[in-house]
């Protein structure tokens, strides 16, 4: 059957699922996994492939490599800011949620911060799994209303006249922040620079200027 596209029907299904499944998350997941595998709806080898990909292969190291490349190669940086989806594909990182990727650049006057207030959209192919705090109600509620308070909790204090540009991912565009290069890193090569790039800096909750 096609989906019903009926909000009331799925809300009722959720209520039934709540009453029929164990209340402990780990037990609930276990019960569903065993049923879905028995039913033939999922292949255990596919489950392992998903988990392995995001444990071993795909993570913020990709984003850090992109940032370091942009810091040392002005032509790449221009391509990244013009069409990040294409630029990251050049590096072999095209994947989930990278098709409409946008890179937003921090400058002396502007600090960028990324959130998804309506769900938890995130550029998986570039940054891997979102940290728990990014998906938490507190961050989703407060990032648009009180970005300075949020940043202060992460240890980032900005001058009052620095503008914060918040990007709420309400469509299929995904955002990554291009942080400012740390001071005193003129002699470092691409690899050494990449090691200084934190995942939080690419979301906007870290400032790397004093990191080296």
């Amino acid at each position: 059957m096609d989906p019903s596209y009926d909000s009331g029907k799925v809300a009722e299904i959720h209520r039934h699922l709540h009453s029929h499944l164990p209340s402990e998350p780990a037990l609930r997941v276990k019960a569903l996994e065993s049923l879905l595998v028995e039913k033939g709806l999922v292949d255990p080898a596919a489950l392992d492939a998903w988990i392995e990909a995001y444990t071993e292969e795909i993570g913020p190291k990709r984003g850090a490599a992109i940032v370091a490349r942009a810091w040392i190669d002005p032509a790449f940086k221009s391509r990244l800011l013009a069409d990040a989806g294409k630029a990251v594909a050049e590096m072999g990182f095209a994947g989930q949620a990278s098709g409409h990727l946008k890179a937003v650049e921090n400058t002396d006057g502007v600090h960028n911060l990324v959130v998804c207030t309506l769900c938890s959209c995130y550029p998986f192919a570039i940054l891997g799994m979102a940290p728990a705090w990014y998906k938490a109600n507190e961050y989703r509620a407060r990032a648009v209303r009180d970005p300075r308070g949020v940043l202060a909790e992460f240890g980032v204090t900005l001058a009052p006249d620095t503008r914060i540009d918040v990007w709420d991912s309400t469509a299929e565009l995904r955002y990554m922040v291009l942080p400012q290069r740390p001071d005193g890193t003129e002699g470092l090569d691409e690899q050494a620079l990449a090691a200084l790039v934190t995942r939080n800096a690419m979301i906007g909750t870290d400032d790397l200027r004093g990191a080296a």
Binding site: E33, L36, D43, A46, D48, W50
Partner: peptide, 10 residues
Amino acid sequence: ARAYALCVSM
């Protein structure tokens, strides 16, 4: 991890 993998597999 299992919940994520089950969801995207389905």
